[in-house]
Write a protein that binds this DNA or RNA. Structure first.
Lengths: 250, 250
DNA sequence: CGCTATGCCGAACACTGTACGGACTCCGCA
DNA sequence: TGCGGAGTCCGTACAGTGTTCGGCATAGCG
């Protein structure tokens, strides 16, 4: 029986030619290792390149080896999102008066994380509030704490936190999707903006107000332009929240 | 040769049994028809169900028939996004003093469009600022006009508009992804929130501030809760922008 | 030593987007 | 009237996807 299975095609398929099937040279696969490599792959090649097979070969593993560690590709993505949230810094326990500075620092940190991993923009819309990972919790609790420390009651602190988070996420998503489109084009930020310009002008032809908007594009360094735009909106949002805080604190 | 091709399986495939291959009973395919049907499919079955083959059968067309009308699936999606932006109402030419009411109406209209088509959340992160469709332009120009009419100079009006849009998009994306998760679960909004509750509480265990947040979940009607949350943030953002407008207008 | 649990993987399945080439219809021009 | 080209539609094919299943080999435990 064993002899009969010594079969045809393979030249010499004996025990000795077998690659010994590494015992534990790599610590096999672990959830955190998988997630870390997935983030690396996403950073390097974007969301379209994340397939289980590609991820498998990078970890020299098979494509179906992940299903022992993770239920789904979707579940893997949830883990990856939480991993990125791990990069966000929140103040330990905010001093009551510094709430505005704390909130601004938090917002900047959140934006930085999203821009460092622009593929997050494609993913945030799919994973919902069902996000219950530890880092998402930590960031939420931290930002909530800022507004509670500022003197808002619990329910209003939640509203304030959601407002700030919505602004940061909304702005960062549009920045991030710009950055990925940019990366796909291979051009520099200036070149790409310049190349887009005629199309944009044509599209804006019917709306004179928009003309100036696109005309202003190539003027300054786009990077600092984006930073200033984010900062302006952040200040306005915090202005608005300051009104609410002042109302409660007198 | 022709005789040899009169083949096996078909009972009688002769010229006379042929269904005459409709000439132009349907106006064939048109770009707007394709886009409309794609929106319908997305509304009914969500982003995961949009495949060219499925869309094809709904229009009784082949899967590859779209490539005469549209370069890509991505291009189709750009068209679909612009179609949804077509539902958004913007004020014609705002009266100078009503800027706040106009902006609020605009924001509500944008939110309504995104919530009516929750799959937009999954898509907004992928299509970037390269969105140059006529309806996106119309909405942008309209919202920009509101702030110009309010007295802001062109560049600051752009900043203000971007701030408001970022808030609305960010908040609506998180609402929409909640709604799609909800729809996938099949349960009602209350049931689903109640079912999620123990997991949320467990995840929030380490953060006492979050406990109250989730504890408040099943209290009121989730729908009006969402509406109020959006309204609160919108008021705060407009408060902040009002400060800027007041500064310029004296 | 043997047994069972566990992680890993090859093969297979259903399905995706898209390139290609052929067939058909229509329109303008000779 | 006939013809040729342009435009549309689609069957086929290909590479690649997520996921299931069944068979492994190993690890840890008795």
């Amino acid at each position: 029986m064993a002899a009969s299975r010594a079969n045809d095609k393979q030249p010499i398929a004996s025990v000795w030619t077998r690659p010994e099937r590494r015992k534990r040279d790599q610590p096999a696969l672990s959830r955190s290792q998988i997630v870390a490599e997935a983030v690396r792959l996403l950073d390097e090649e974007g969301i379209g390149a994340l397939s289980l097979r590609r991820l498998g070969t990078r970890l020299n593993a098979g494509a179906t080896s992940f299903y022992s560690h993770v239920a789904n590709k979707d579940e893997l993505i949830e883990l990856v999102v939480d991993e990125v949230y791990g990069e966000i810094a929140v103040p330990e326990a905010g001093a009551p008066a510094d709430w505005r500075a704390d909130a601004a620092r938090c917002a900047q940190s959140l934006r930085a994380a999203l821009l460092a991993h622009p593929w997050m923009a494609s993913v945030l819309g799919e994973v919902g509030v069902s996000q219950l990972g530890p880092n998402v919790m930590r960031v939420s609790a931290g930002m909530l704490g800022i507004f509670q420390a500022a003197g808002l009651p619990a329910d209003e602190a939640d509203l304030a936190f959601s407002t700030l988070a919505a602004y940061v996420i909304g702005m960062s998503i549009s920045e991030a999707s710009w950055l990925t489109a940019l990366a796909r084009s291979g051009r520099s930020e200036q070149d790409w903006a310049a190349e887009l310009w005629p199309a944009a002008e044509a599209a804006a032809a019917a709306h004179p107000g928009l003309r100036e908007r696109y005309a202003a594009l190539p003027a300054k360094d786009p990077r600092t332009l984006r930073d200033e735009k984010f900062g302006y909106g952040l200040d306005r949002v915090l202005d608005g929240l300051a009104g609410a805080v002042g109302q409660r604190a007198g």
